[in-house]
Simulated scan of single mutants.
Amino acid sequence: MSRQKSPPKPIDERLPEIRTTLERAAGMLVCLDFDGTLAPIVEDPDAAAPTQPNREAVAALARTAGVTTAVVSGRALADVRERIDGPTVYAGNHGLELARGGSIAVHPVARKRADRIQRVCSVIETVLESVPNCRVENKRLTGTVHVRTVSKSAEPIVRRVTRDIVDRFGGDDLEISSGKRILEIGPNVPWGKGNAVELIAADEPPRTAVVYVGDDVTDESAFRAVEPDGIGIRVGGDEPSSASCRVESPAEVESALSWFASTGAKLIAHPAPTGAARAEPTRPAGR
């Protein structure tokens, strides 16, 4: 059963539960969102890059025995693969594209509706051309309308026009979801990041502990997929979430990943005896 939404606790307060989860595990799968998690949110999406500490932390995790790493992003698969090296698995377009085991799988319905996504993105871009700083990103299988740099007065217009065009040209085949000052346009299929995480986890050995780190509304399905047996970590404030714990920013993500690569991996390899005292030499969020 998935964990009900409630304010996630700071990760330091969840260390005993995290330790218990890892001590019971035979391996670890760490799945990571990109924007707002490994990379700070920036006004220009093309300028997004993981922080150097996060880049190094992901590389360290990828080298750790018993640990599999994956990036699960709303960006197109080719885009996110260029931005971060090291993970074994990549999922793009909210899981509609999945690169694993040397092959790439694309959701069949998303593939069929790609032309419609491109047409809708083109129409929106034309209609909103006069709105300063409004950007429409065509990711082939999905599209994103960015309103982060749009004026407050123009934002309702952008949202209304986008919805009207998707309704007119997409019908029941396309849907809109909201994120952090973005509108996501995608195929109307029951598929998201959580489904991708479940597919990735199915390739892992039994008793693998699954960790998911993300910051946005689209990450909630992944939190639901891993909780309560795994570990969901929300990046940001204490708004209700299906994640059980949180860190405040991408800067704190590095501390958490470093903890999983060192202390966490050792707990899997050498679980502490029941009732034994447990030292806390390193804390994941550096608080």
Rank of each mutant, 00 (worst) to 15 (best):
K112R: 15
A114P: 02
R116W: 02
R119P: 03
R119D: 10
R119N: 08
V120I: 13
V127N: 04
V127P: 02
E129Y: 07
S130Q: 13
S130Y: 09
C134H: 07
V136P: 01
E137R: 03
K139R: 10
R140Y: 10
T142E: 04
V147K: 01
V147H: 05
V147D: 00
S151E: 08
S153A: 15
A154T: 06
P156E: 13
I157S: 10
I157Y: 12
V158T: 05
V158Q: 09
R159D: 12
R160M: 14
V161A: 11
D164Q: 15
V166H: 02
R168F: 08
R168G: 05
R168K: 14
G170S: 12
G170P: 08
G171E: 08
G171M: 11
G171S: 07
D172Y: 07
D173P: 02
L174H: 05
L174Q: 08
L174W: 07
L174S: 07
E175W: 04
I176C: 04
S178I: 03
G179K: 05
G179N: 11
G179I: 03
K180G: 09
R181I: 02
R181Q: 09
G186S: 10
G186H: 00
N188V: 01
N188E: 03
N188I: 02
V189F: 00
G192R: 00
V197P: 04
E198G: 12
I200L: 10
I200P: 05
A201C: 07
D203W: 03
E204F: 03
E204L: 06
R207P: 02
